[in-house]
């Protein structure tokens, strides 16, 4: 599903290049649950953003479902975002002016899903995540865990093939964190491909594969039995 070859990323500061990613080659198949780990500043977010097509490498090639992402125009990227990708952020990033219901509904609006169908899908997911009672609240009226629940709901409502999560539990208490990780596991069991970034070894154990980054290099890539 994902095929990175010799991806490099650097920032220029003055005449100097400061390297963030070096020579990253990576294959991720459908149905995998990958965890990216590494010290702060090792390039995890950058790698995830490149995979999520929010950022681009300076060199190398990236194929997503056999399509050459490095040659995409913005329009095609938007299409991919719409139909294949879901994002979960450490800081939740809900839209403050929209209610829980409306936040979750928004991706369907961009997909032009019909009114009736949309209502059914949103109701379904509210039910599944157990947040029906909260649907008319605004994000600032929710706890962190609840906000992240909404974040996940929003990310998966469009049935993406790939879910990307950058430290989804980073701002959460252990308990809430576990709840989110269990949710991920269920999603993975239902067949969703997931790539997450985390610092916690415990969270990594929910997945099927761990990639460790060090100074922009892939230092280790192991499968979990």
């Amino acid at each position: 599903m994902i095929n990175l070859e010799n991806i490099e990323k650097y920032y220029r500061s003055g005449l100097q290049k400061s390297w963030v990613l070096r020579d990253i080659s990576l294959n991720v198949d459908e149905g995998e649950f990958v965890t990216i780990m590494g010290a702060s500043g090792s390039g995890k977010t950058t790698l995830l953003n490149i995979i999520g097509m929010l950022d681009e490498g300076n060199n190398g090639s990236y194929h997503f479902l056999d399509e050459p992402v490095h040659k995409f125009r913005e329009k095609r990227r938007t299409e991919i975002h719409k139909h294949y990708l879901g994002f979960v952020f450490q800081a939740y990033h809900l839209i403050e002016e929209l209610t829980v219901y409306e936040n979750i509904e928004t991706p369907l609006l961009y997909r032009n899903v019909k009114n009736q169908e949309r209502k059914a899908i949103v109701a379904d997911i509210l039910d599944r995540f157990n947040i029906v009672a909260k649907k008319d609240l605004f994000p600032n009226q929710l706890s962190g865990g609840q906000q992240q629940l909404v974040g996940v709901a929003r990310a998966i409502i469009g049935k993406p093939k790939l879910l990307l999560a950058d430290e989804p539990t980073g701002n959460l208490h252990t308990e809430q964190g576990q709840m989110i990780m269990n949710l991920f596991k269920t999603l993975h069991d239902d067949g969703m491909t997931i790539i997450q970034v985390t610092h916690a070894e415990k969270n990594a154990q929910y997945g099927t594969r761990i990639i460790r980054l060090n100074d922009g290099f892939i230092e280790e890539d192991t499968m979990i039995a």
Binding site: G52, L85, G86, H93
Partner: peptide, 16 residues
């Protein structure tokens, strides 16, 4: 800006 970022990740085009 944040809202714009979020909307783009969930599939908003520039035009929308």
């Amino acid at each position: 800006a944040k809202e714009v970022g979020v909307r783009k990740t969930i599939g908003a085009s520039k035009n929308s």
